[in-house]
């Protein structure tokens, strides 16, 4: 395995993490709401893909939109019913509430499909590796990089160029002022929450092959999402994007070169970064 191969694997991993966590960063920035259950939506997406493929024989690519839609729908419903009363509560309450949701999701998934690791068989055109200028690249990883890269570009574009995006940015910046300007922050948030959950679902589906999938997924990857969000900050999309890339490459590289350290390096880096830059690595300072 060459350095470049590790780098590409790390980027693919980081891309998936970005798609998984991007929704969380916007909801955190917009409503100042700590949703530790974000990973549960990702898990839902993952299982949609797995079950559609295993039970109904739906082709992999066709399951991806379904993963997005089901997770988005779940997000929309839960936001409307359970999440909304939580916005005014303390961070601690929000954290406990969302941990509760995670626990429920984990146990429910165990009950419904069992606790084993899920394996999917990718279509043949995504299997195997090929050489690009002497660097061995996995087809699936390249597919993930291209797809998530396009998604990231679409998100940048949506966030920066569209009317929806500019309203969203205004609301993230200062929800009260935005309300005063007549921006429907509540509706904006519901849509963003649903899209964010949908993206998590899509990320979960894409991640089955790369991250693995079992009912403990939301707990196992919670810390990764939080790293992306806390390190990347919540005021931009570029921040979490670079944070996800950094995390992906560091994690893949770390596990390859110093396997005995495990996830130790990642957590250590996160704690250090949080202390040095509590507002996030890429956040602009607010005065």
């Amino acid at each position: 395995m060459t350095l470049l191969t590790i780098l590409i694997d790390g980027i693919a991993y980081g891309m998936v993490l970005f798609v998984l966590a991007s929704g969380l960063s916007v909801t955190l920035g917009l409503m100042n709401f700590v949703n530790l259950a974000h990973g549960a939506f990702a898990m839902v997406g993952g299982y949609v893909t797995v079950l559609l493929m295993q039970r109904l024989g739906v082709p992999f690519l066709a399951t991806l939109p379904a993963a997005f839609l089901v997770a988005a729908l779940a997000g929309l419903v839960l936001e409307r019913t359970l999440y909304r009363p939580m916005y005014a509560k303390s961070h601690l309450d929000q954290v406990m509430f969302s941990i509760g949701l995670v626990f429920m999701a984990v146990a429910a998934m165990k009950y419904a499909v069992g606790s084993q690791q899920q394996i999917i068989s990718l279509p043949s055109f995504l299997l195997g590796r090929f050489d690009v200028f002497g660097v061995s690249v996995g087809r699936y990883r390249l597919f993930v990089i291209v797809l998530c890269g396009l998604l990231a570009l679409a998100l940048f574009w949506g966030f920066v160029r569209t009317r929806f995006g500019s309203r969203l940015r205004a609301a993230v910046d200062d929800a009260r002022v935005a309300r005063g300007l007549g921006i429907p922050v509540t509706a904006l948030f519901a849509v963003t929450f649903a899209v964010g959950s949908g993206l998590a679902g899509l990320g979960g589906a894409l991640g089955v092959e790369l991250l693995g999938l079992d009912p403990t997924f939301p707990l196992k990857f919670m810390i990764y999402f939080l790293i992306v969000v806390t390190v990347g900050g919540t005021t931009t999309i570029t921040g979490p994007f670079f944070a996800a890339m950094l995390l992906g490459v560091a994690d893949v590289g770390g596990k390859y070169f110093i396997p005995q350290a495990g996830a130790f390096i990642i957590y250590g880096v996160m704690v250090a970064l949080l202390i040095l830059r509590p507002e996030g690595l890429f956040a602009r300072s607010r005065s």
Binding site: K89, M96, Y111
Partner: peptide, 18 residues
């Protein structure tokens, strides 16, 4: 015995919600 976690979660959610 297996799904204790689910009930914990439910209690957490119910508690915080009111």
């Amino acid at each position: 015995p297996q799904y204790w976690q689910f009930w914990i979660g439910l209690f957490l959610v119910a508690f915080v919600l009111g």
